[in-house]
């Protein structure tokens, strides 16, 4: 039991941090530009594929630094030549643009790298057992992922709290109109934020690719969950995104460990009254719990847990 709890916690935190790496960029983009970026998970996927392509040519470490930058560039280009044009048609058009973009990116990735998973591996320098606990090994690479995620969180926090750029971004989070009026070059700020957001997602992709499977469906698998994180945490709140990421990471991992069904808790009579629903275990529905959370949070607190704006 203790073993299960320990590992579930570790895995939950790790998964949560991975979600946060993407959610932070998504929240930034959303708060400043009002765009719910459906293609955000696609940048994560591009990151993984770029990471794979670079690391098989010149090694994992160069990929670790180069790939996110490239993804950031792609993001900036998308903003400059796509989103900016659509901006004048309103937020729905912007959202639909990213919706179509996600579709196109998935198809392009399938065309270039094929439909099957690619052989993107953990680099040998990190391919060892970090520690052994109750007879289960914990890979060093997962610790590395955790370290990168934490480092990124600290870096983001420092930039936002201690630098001038951070000040502007913070201001734009809550009062986007005011920031523009103060004379900041809003289009450039938008482009950079979009680029940086994409780069963060790309970084998540580079490090998650070897641990999970690098394949064309990886974006679609994660995309909706990101929205859950951002919305549950509260639109425009980085702290909210952080808490929601960890929350959802932990809920999902712990739910998997629980084999209880209604029948086990209330006895078979109650379970039979509910038909199929009575027999379903918590573990079975683990991946849909976040959506339940999403709907419940939005019903009772439409601004999300930490947010103070609705759109």
């Amino acid at each position: 039991m203790l073993q299960l709890v320990t590992f579930s916690t570790l895995n939950g935190v790790l998964y949560g941090m991975l979600l946060f790496m993407m959610a932070s960029g998504l929240t930034l983009i959303f708060s400043m530009m009002g765009v719910l970026n459906f293609a955000h998970a696609s940048f994560y996927m591009i990151g993984a594929y770029f990471g794979f392509e670079i690391s098989r040519r010149i090694g994992f470490w160069p990929a670790f630094f180069i790939a996110p930058v490239l993804v950031g560039l792609v993001g900036a280009l998308v903003e400059r030549f796509g989103l900016r044009r659509v901006h004048k048609f309103g937020h729905v058009a912007e959202l639909l643009f990213t919706f179509g973009l996600a579709f196109v990116i998935e198809e392009l990735v399938q065309m270039i790298w094929g439909k099957l998973p690619v052989d993107y591996r953990v680099p040998p320098s990190l391919d060892f057992v970090a520690f052994r606990l109750f007879d289960t090994t914990y890979p060093a690479y997962r610790m590395f992922m955790l370290a990168v995620a934490v480092a990124m969180f600290v870096f983001l926090l420092l930039v936002l709290k201690r630098t001038r750029v951070g000040l502007i971004i913070q201001a734009a989070l809550t009062h986007p109109g005011m920031v523009a009026m103060l004379g900041h070059d809003v289009p450039t700020v938008f482009m950079s934020v979009f680029g940086v957001g994409a780069a963060l997602a790309g970084l998540a992709g580079v490090i998650a690719g070897p641990a999970l499977v690098t394949q064309p469906a990886m974006a679609a698998l994660l995309g909706p969950i990101l929205f859950v994180v951002v919305v549950v945490g509260g639109l425009g709140s980085l702290a909210g995104a952080f808490v929601a990421s960890l929350l959802i990471g932990l809920i999902q991992t712990f739910a998997v460990a629980i084999n209880l069904s209604m029948g086990d808790v209330f006895g078979p009579a109650v379970a039979n009254a509910f038909g199929d629903l009575g027999r379903v275990t918590v573990a079975q529905i683990a991946p849909i719990i976040p959506y339940l959370l999403l709907v419940l949070v939005l019903i009772f607190k439409p601004t999300g847990l930490f947010g103070n704006r609705e759109s």
């Binding site: 073993q3 590992f7 579930s8 991992t253 998997v256 460990a257």
Partner: peptide
């Protein structure tokens, strides 16, 4: 005797922890 949702799971390590246990 476990069932997991079809093509919705990103990280199987929780399931592995259970198998191991």
């Amino acid at each position: 005797d476990e069932v997991h949702p079809l093509q919705k799971v990103t990280d199987f390590s929780p399931y592995i922890a259970k198998i191991k246990a």
